[in-house]
Design a protein around this nucleic acid. Structure first.
Lengths: 165, 165
DNA sequence: GGTCAATATTTTAAGCTTAAGATGAAACGC
DNA sequence: GCGTTTCATCTTAAGCTTAAAATATTGACC
């Protein structure tokens, strides 16, 4: 033992530079996914704001436009959001006359959302422009890259949902 | 002209079934990206909740843990969120003693966030477990698929950010 | 030096999203 | 039939995130 002054507090151990090859690969993948989704989502949201809608509102209208009237719970499943969220967004869209609710006569628990003509007209006018905008973003990648990317994303997403419920 | 009763309102035109091959491909890609990111993000968030943190808090602590003290604006750039958001999250983390702010003497506009020992200890204890959880999620794909996916995501994200500012 | 634009942070208001719980309705087992 | 469970929707409270404006500081240009 040295008999000098009590040592200053030990410097904190540096963080590991690696967590193993598999973990490092997985972490990089998750960071790339989150950043890419944020960037594309932001570009998409800017476009949608130009139509006077939020991303959430546009997503609900789009599902109804392309799939027809749907129970609220099915909209939530397709968009991967909670039922409370769909209630909230549907309230807004109903208030401004883009859709109407209709309670199902078969099962009085379910409420089906129907696009009103005003909402259908909005989609008919804006969706092609939005699709062109997304096409422009995807154009940064070659067609083959887009297909490969979509295939891997779909596969991973499906497996993750299956693993986690 | 027929002279029968006025015709009932014409049924609304059905939505296009396709917006062209390129647009269809791009839209499917964007849907796959959004759904995959939501699913992985939700699984990651559930894990992080077990440490008593939100995703946003964990992300800030993680950046500081692995990169060292950083100006708030740089944290925001790395996480692709606004400065106001970083202020909000840093307030919470400062309040519970995980980090401290330190105004830079060189440029008195910038505030650098430093991990406190308590925050560093939390990361040292939890991050390896979190990395293992992410590794488990990524394990649904083969190593080669993970690498290909990460490469495409990074490429697309970078190009989209370059195009949109 | 003085002015003006750019930058870092904070503040504020508004909207999105979730978890948890309440309500009403259907389905199931006995 | 009857109780239990499950389901769809709605409600509420809380937290996240953003855009926009305010503040303070820096740097550049004349």
């Amino acid at each position: 033992m040295k008999r000098s002054k009590p040592a200053p507090p030990a410097p904190p151990p540096p963080p590991p530079r690696s967590y193993g090859p598999a973990a490092d690969r997985a972490l990089k993948l998750w960071v790339a996914l989150a950043r890419c989704a944020a960037s594309v989502g932001r570009a998409s949201a800017r476009d949608i704001q130009g139509y006077g809608l939020t991303q959430a509102q546009f997503a609900v209208l789009e599902v109804l436009y392309h799939k027809g009237p749907l129970p609220l719970c099915e909209i939530g499943e397709k968009l991967l959001v909670t039922s409370g969220n769909i209630t909230y967004v549907a309230d807004q869209l109903e208030r401004v006359g883009y859709l109407r609710r209709e309670r199902s006569p078969d099962d009085r628990r379910v409420v089906r959302a129907h696009l009103r003509p005003k909402g259908r007209a909005l989609m008919a006018r804006t969706f092609p422009r939005h699709a062109a905008r997304i096409e422009g973003l995807a154009g940064a990648l070659a067609a083959g890259e887009q297909a490969a990317l979509a295939r891997l994303l779909k596969k991973w997403g499906k497996l993750v949902r299956a693993a986690a419920g």
